[in-house]
């Protein structure tokens, strides 16, 4: 799969990464070659194969659905880059 510069920029926008103009070319060609390389999977016949999402063979226990309430707001806010009273602060979103 050939990834052109516009596609790279579009993906970057989707995952909120800002890519410099000078990086775009190198990244596009790296992404293209990685995708070309993974496309060898198309050689494998996977008709009627169930996708594997959990490899565990152990029985995974269920827990009781009990609510558990503790006040951890202080802990949660301790690493905030910017906070005010009990809130995270972000740049203004409404004018």
């Amino acid at each position: 799969m050939k990834i052109d510069k516009n596609t790279t920029l579009k993906i970057a926008k989707l995952c909120r990464l800002r890519i410099e103009e000078r990086e775009t070319e190198e990244l596009s060609s790296q992404l293209s070659s990685i995708l070309d390389w993974v496309e060898q999977l198309n050689e494998v016949n996977t008709d009627n194969v169930e996708p594997l999402s959990n490899v565990s063979t152990a029985e995974l226990p269920l827990r009781k659905d009990i609510e558990n309430s503790e006040d951890k707001s202080k802990d949660i806010l301790i690493n905030a880059p910017e906070k005010l009273e009990n809130y995270f602060v972000v740049p203004k979103v409404v004018e």
Binding site: R16, I76, N79, A80, P81, F88, K92
Partner: peptide, 19 residues
């Protein structure tokens, strides 16, 4: 950059801050 970890100093909008 909202809840923990590094946040860029340049942030005129929320989207710009994320990016």
């Amino acid at each position: 950059g909202v809840k923990y970890g590094f946040r860029s100093n340049e942030n005129n909008s929320l989207d710009e801050m994320y990016e």
